[in-house]
Design a protein around this nucleic acid. Sequence first.
DNA 1: TCTGGGGTCCTAGGACCC
DNA 2: TCTGGGGTCCTAGGACCC
Length: 415
Amino acid sequence: MAIAATILHADLDAFYASVEQLLAPSLRGKPIAVGGGVVLAASYEARAFGVRGGITGRQARELCPQITFVDGHFRDYQRLGDAAIDVIGDFTPLVERISIDEAFADVAGCTHLFGPPAEIASAIRQRVRSELGLPISVGVARTKHLAKIASQVAKPDGLTVVDPDTELEFLHDLPVELMWGVGPVTKARLAEIGVETIGQLAGTPGWSLERLLGPAAGEKLAALAWNRDPREIRTHRRTRSAGAQSAIGRKPPEEQVFRPTLLHLADRIGSRLRSKSRPGRTVTVRVRFANLNSATRSVTLDAPISATVILAEIAEKLVRAILAEHPDEKIISLLAISVSHLEEHWDLELELPLGLQDEPRRPGSRMGLARWTADRAIDKIRDRFGWDAIGYGSVVLGLSRSVPDEFRELAEKEL
DNA sequence: TCTGGGGTCCTAGGACCC
DNA sequence: TCTGGGGTCCTAGGACCC
């Protein structure tokens, strides 16, 4: 009595590039790349030349001289990604969105209405194609892990259904790097003991994997190799952290460099946290140096914070501590701030008195009130007139924005 | 020749408590 | 006083994913 395969994984193909080809018919059938300095996404026609997301524009042109570069239409990505997920939601409420262009769904409860899972998957693909004009691949299987692999195998613009009776035959011939959680490092470690396929992984003793990869990863991979994946569809997942980072080129580790950048990052994060009433207790900063090595420092407070200036001050202290420990580093290339240990629901009024516990001995503690009031005022103006209408302006102006804000927002998770 | 930005989870050591 | 054990939290660093 096999359990039915009712998990779907749906994944829009070459999403950004497909949207651009949808918006501009002249681009269809041609190799294109979204982005300029860095390729954010490449059409399948460009991928045929070896162009991949992440390479530089120059490398892309070397691989494919006739490639067309286009600027991203980020609002459209959000709109069309949402619309595609909505199509899935017309079949079942059990939808777990993974990213802008990808989602799991469990259709076990709606087959009496819409037919077997394979038919539902097919209907989703047809609707996304006809209503939105976009290609989407779907994998159907008994577990999330296998459904995700199936959708990768189905690409581009395909459907793969894995019958529960033959799932191991399907799985075991595939290379290990198709598994969720196997990146370059794990792939290399597995190769050291001669494991290159998922079948070989399944045949490796558990103790061997745990010694090689650690207890958690070892156990997890062994289970996934036998398609033992207990994860269920999670429709609501609380975000656990919120952060922002900025690549700043190659700059000296001086206050004039890091101070304005940190204030800007703190402002972005703080406004997000405040808008969702989710201040956090732990502040982490990261500094990347010239050689791409990086160092992190974090501190956990007694009470959660979301005020921009307080966040910026804490971040600055942490960055100074990092720089003090790396006196030989003459170049910094990236600054990042992240806030974690987020409160679930927080009355921001409480942040005022509690946040001040942070620095009780400071005579200027009452400045906390001014900071708090200023943040609220700025938030309100931004609500009405947009994010750039006001802010720590002297800061914002001087910043080089290597990536449009719309793109950053695309990657932000709902708090 | 060095890709940017937003996330999640795991590990290992130390502090602290019972 | 010595020995041992268990649990939780914090911090720094990594691997991985989209």
